[in-house]
């Protein structure tokens, strides 16, 4: 049996705000094999982003165990897990290439070496010509490409994307989706992708995990049996529609 890239075992998360305790995640069990592209969908506030921040090690779960390659996650391990946020969250005083190199700087890599690695990443995300621009000189889509480069620069086995395209327009979203697929196909990384957009989930993923409304539980685990490479025309196919309908039914029910 191959070891899972990410495992969640009975993961529970409670938030206490002003003495009020809310259950955000309720006993999540999930095994993600290496190289799989998994989309997490569900109604707003269902805890899918919370699960991502737990996998990233940004906080510890209230209960249960999270493992990355069989080892417990007790804090951020950026060499193994790269994170891409909804907002690009670039440091505004650093150029694109310096932003991509930032995680390497934190590790103490010498300047020349890390800038070289960062340039290669920007080439991969199609932004090689904009390496020396400051973030405010870049469009939303370009910023997100920088952010993707930053997530990839340490060559982590697992890539977490938290609604990475939610703030972008539809066309940029499509283009960047293809870009992520291309990078994924080339690097074979394990991907966890949180999104609100069902078409995006079906288009990108091998497998879709559907969450219920709070407290978040997994209500469906949908394998996406569409062939790869995915094409734009597939989105109008019957199979694509059926998959979307199946997921939508859960989300609609959860809203009651």
């Amino acid at each position: 049996m191959t070891q899972s890239a990410v495992s969640a075992r009975a993961v529970t998360q409670n938030f206490t705000v002003e003495g009020q305790s809310t259950l955000a995640l309720d006993a999540i069990d999930l095994e993600i094999p290496p190289g799989q592209f998994v989309a997490l969908v569900g109604p707003s506030g269902c805890g899918k982003s919370t699960l991502l921040s737990l996998v990233a090690g940004l906080r510890l779960p209230t209960g249960g165990t999270l493992l990355c390659n069989g080892e417990p996650i007790v804090g951020p391990v950026p060499q193994r897990i790269g994170m891409i946020f909804q907002e690009a969250n670039l440091l505004p005083w650093l150029t694109a290439v310096e932003n991509v190199a930032f995680p390497l700087k934190l590790r103490g890599m010498p300047k020349r070496e890390r800038l070289e690695a960062a340039r290669a990443m920007l080439d991969l995300t199609g932004l090689g010509n904009f390496a020396d621009r400051l973030p405010h000189q870049l469009s939303g889509g370009m910023k997100q490409r920088v952010s993707i480069g930053r997530g990839l620069v340490q060559d982590p086995g697992v890539l977490l994307l938290d609604e990475p395209f939610a703030a972008l327009d539809e066309q940029t979203r499509m283009v960047l989706g293809d870009e992520v697929l291309r990078i994924w196909a080339r690097t074979g990384k394990t991907v966890m992708f949180v999104t609100h957009n069902l078409s995006e989930a079906v288009y990108l993923a091998d497998r879709i995990i559907v969450f219920s409304a709070r407290p978040g539980r997994i209500v469906d685990d949908v394998p996406v049996d569409l062939p790869r490479p995915r094409t734009f025309s597939m989105m109008s196919s019957e199979r694509f529609g059926a998959l979307k309908d199946r997921i939508w039914a859960h989300i609609r029910d959860a809203d009651h």
Binding site: A56, G57, L58, P76, V77, P78, Q79, M83, F85, E87, N89, L91, F102, P103, L106, R107, R150
Partner: peptide, 12 residues
């Protein structure tokens, strides 16, 4: 807080 959280995610 986003920038600080991002830095934390990248191991700062």
């Amino acid at each position: 807080p986003h920038l600080l959280e991002t830095a934390r995610a990248f191991g700062a």
